[in-house]
Design a protein around this nucleic acid. Sequence first.
RNA 1: GUGCCCGUAGCUCAAUCGGAUAGAGCACCAGCCUUCUAAGCUGGGGGUUACAGGUUCGAUUCCUGUCGGGCACACCA
Length: 590
Amino acid sequence: MIESHSLTLHASIIALFRKAVRIVSPDSKPNIVLERPRQADHGEFACTLALQLAKTTHRPPRELAKALIDALPPSKFIEKIDVAGPGFINIFLTPAAKQSVVSEVLNSNGRWGEINLGHQRRIQVEFVSSNPTGPLHVGHGRGASFGASLANILEKAGYRVQREYYVNDAGRQMDILTVSTWLRYLAGFGSLIAFPPNGYQGDYVTEMANHLRGAEGARLVRTDQAVLQGSSGFAMNQHDDVPTEAQIEAHMDVLIANAKSLLGNDYRIVHQLALREQLADCREDLEAFGVVFDEWFSEQSLYDDGSIAKVVEQLAAAGHLYVQDGAQWFRSTAFGDEKDRVIQRENGIFTYFASDIAYHANKFARGFDVIVDVWGADHHGYIPRVMAALTALGLDAKRMHVPLVQFVSLYRHGEKVQMSTRKGQFVTLRELRTEVGRDAARFFYVLRKSDQHLDFDLDLAKSESNDNPVYYVQYAHARIHGVLAKWGGESNRLSQVALTPLNSPQEFALMQWLREYPETLELAAREYAPHMVAFYLKELAAALHSYYNAVQFLVDDESLKLARLALICAVAAVLRDGLALLGVSAPEKM
RNA sequence: GUGCCCGUAGCUCAAUCGGAUAGAGCACCAGCCUUCUAAGCUGGGGGUUACAGGUUCGAUUCCUGUCGGGCACACCA
């Protein structure tokens, strides 16, 4: 990390206050915090130290504030200090201290905003992790945007980040996809079996069936009687009664079992084809969305290498398991969960919870200092049991964090669009990307707090995409580039120019925003809140547009011109950097 | 029923670990292009922060309760 002048400025002012406290109130050890006042006439920094100390010292805050200011050692950065309101200490920087940020940005080689919050600790961000049973939909898009932006921000904040996708390639949902593909394949050879209501009904399944036919010919065809052997047959068309949920699931169980026994080792061929095609599709889709993973971690591998059996043994050996009704239970209530959880079913099959324990134990074994799981909000009840299991294994569950991303509701023609992956009635991420564009989609997704429901109005996003705030930010960047292009000089020169001509309110406002960039990133990284970066960029763009309308850049006064160009060049650099963190492009022309 | 999240301008949302006069965008009204991009700017109206208490110098923020919305409460994944 570069030694930031901005941070030393911040730190040096805190150091001044620490000295002042030693004189005014030697016994106090307060946590000294500098705030950014919302209003410009409250200075560049504000300190609430006097208000904090008032309680313990039993002295009026304004009097304390005055005493602190008197005791403050002089600083070349500080123009003046005021006491305001109930006892705020407002600090006003000298013009030179404010202007210096411009050359800092321009001389940072694109590293402005880097902070050392992470101290190069290893952090894993796992996100999306959607079942590879169909195309990603708009809900996954939010998780993808959030996770990818968060990972970028954490990297900028000094963490070594690994981006991971957990592939649920081992469960029943994959079996259902496999059977669905096979049934479509059979239908292509004249099978009359009714397609089960809980099968995957999207067109992509038929496509995979065609690929299967191309690769294997008629080799995998079996008779309808054999495929349906042992099923109640409710799903045949002649049946009028509406089947119950349990009947539907039982029917699927029979189909899966029959498929496995009828196809033998060839079942794996169908399974692998479906998995391979879905993963490839998913990866391509995400990459086009600007979301790239370092690792695609297979759930199946945890079965194959015995990891799951191993953690279950570990838990058993530690006395955390018991048997009831033939199933094996984990006593998670001993670790704060509200009820105990089944880890191995009566039929001997491990639950998803079991593989999840093994997966998280594996993450810890890989040596990450911090583990971040980005989950949908509907999984919130799942957190305590995973934490419980990790604690039971002797791992430090506090190193795991689970930011929850709330649902996305899609609106089309003013009506809520119902989404169901199985029935194939959903708007896919791919469709969304095509309709509103990658930049708008990525920005729109992180434009609200992750724990807030997101209403995505497709018509608005499509028909009035010019109103999308992303264009506002990108336009600021394009405008700056336009000016620099018109000027035609060497941008590198600008990092050396004298900045003293910059003294208008708009210029000081812009410089203040530039200085806040690292602080915004620190907060966003701390709180796992990429939306802060999006809001920051809107503010910075607003300050730029305002400035753009107020002054002329290419003026005759050479020193004034260069100083102004240096300022907007620095603004462009920060806009570009911030947009990149969010996976949004920074066009030079619009 | 129990647990978690949420409730802020007409609408969509912010608000820097409790800070100063709660801010933007959209919509509405009035202005600004002979000059570097008007996808822009300037100004204006719009609020009992769901409600009632509590904690303190200070509460949208923390605590309790009520009302309203979402989600979760499997030997599913």
